[in-house]
Amino acid sequence: MLNLQDLHAYYGKSHVLHGVSFEVGKGEIVALLGRNGSGRSTVAKAIMGLVHAEGGLTWRGKSILGRKAYEVAHLGIGYVPENRDIFPRLTVHQNLILGMKGSGKGSRWGFDDMYAMFPRLKERQHTEAGVLSGGEQQMLTLCRTLMGDPDLIIIDEPTEGLAPKIVELVGQYLQQLKARGISVLLIEQKLTIAMHISDRALVMGHGAIVFDGTPDGLRADEATRKEWLEV
């Protein structure tokens, strides 16, 4: 579904991505791992048209290079950024409404689905999002993105700052997405969640892919883990 081929990205004159190539297939969870500063988040921003990029970037066989973020979103790619980007003065329910595209009819996801997945959000649906805990805000951002009915969701550091029990829940919900045929590009620094739920693992270092294989293969590759990951 998603194909990156020799992708380069820049912040002004700073060359950040150096020939990144990989694919994400239908219903596949692909973990993009690496230390801070390795270029993982820049990959997400390049896909979403938020940084200048050059090279090959296709979605369902058609180039999306240079598209605006809203255009990419309407093609079926959802993005959950690391900083969560909730609307703090709006309620939980209002935040979810803003994630909908059109009327929402025919979507695989609705309010009942969101509240069934995260009962805490149902309890707080009339609460302003700005007073939610970090874990609740992460749940809300994920749900708001799902309300747009994406076929691929890019989620950047979903477990950052969350309690271990919430981290485990996030992993379970990402597997639920896969069960519904949604592809996931999971950008993570922590190995635990990524290694348990992913079909493939990619490791980045200095703006390039330094490992592309299975989670089992990465477990066996001690040299890669020691050099490029926080272990």
Rank of each mutant, 00 (worst) to 15 (best):
166 I>N: 07
220 A>Y: 00
11 Y>T: 06
165 K>W: 08
135 G>F: 06
207 G>N: 02
119 P>Q: 03
84 R>Q: 03
213 G>C: 13
115 Y>M: 08
159 T>C: 15
92 V>M: 13
185 L>R: 03
185 L>V: 04
134 G>A: 04
96 L>D: 12
50 L>Q: 05
82 E>H: 07
47 I>M: 03
170 V>W: 11
178 K>C: 13
156 D>N: 04
123 E>R: 00
163 A>S: 14
212 D>R: 01
193 I>L: 15
126 H>E: 15
18 H>E: 05
10 Y>R: 00
200 R>I: 03
147 M>A: 12
147 M>Q: 12
108 R>E: 11
111 F>Y: 15
146 L>S: 03
143 C>T: 00
14 S>A: 14
97 I>K: 00
51 V>E: 13
122 K>L: 02
12 G>A: 12
214 T>V: 08
83 N>K: 07
74 H>Y: 05
157 E>L: 02
29 I>N: 04
174 L>H: 10
92 V>C: 09
68 K>V: 10
121 L>P: 07
84 R>F: 09
149 D>L: 01
48 M>R: 05
41 S>L: 01
52 H>Q: 12
136 E>N: 09
95 N>R: 05
222 E>W: 03
221 D>E: 13
82 E>D: 13
202 L>Q: 09
231 V>T: 14
137 Q>F: 11
31 A>M: 01
162 L>S: 08
216 D>P: 01
171 G>M: 06
156 D>L: 06
178 K>H: 12
53 A>R: 01
1 M>E: 14
194 A>L: 06
159 T>N: 11
22 F>P: 06
192 T>N: 14
56 G>T: 09
65 L>R: 04
217 G>A: 14
13 K>F: 12
168 E>R: 12
141 T>A: 15
71 E>C: 02
221 D>I: 06
45 K>V: 00
78 G>I: 03
94 Q>C: 04
181 G>Y: 01
165 K>F: 13
25 G>T: 02
217 G>Q: 15
111 F>C: 10
11 Y>W: 06
150 P>H: 09
46 A>D: 11
4 L>S: 11
121 L>C: 04
115 Y>E: 05
167 V>R: 14
90 L>R: 08
131 V>Q: 11
103 S>L: 08
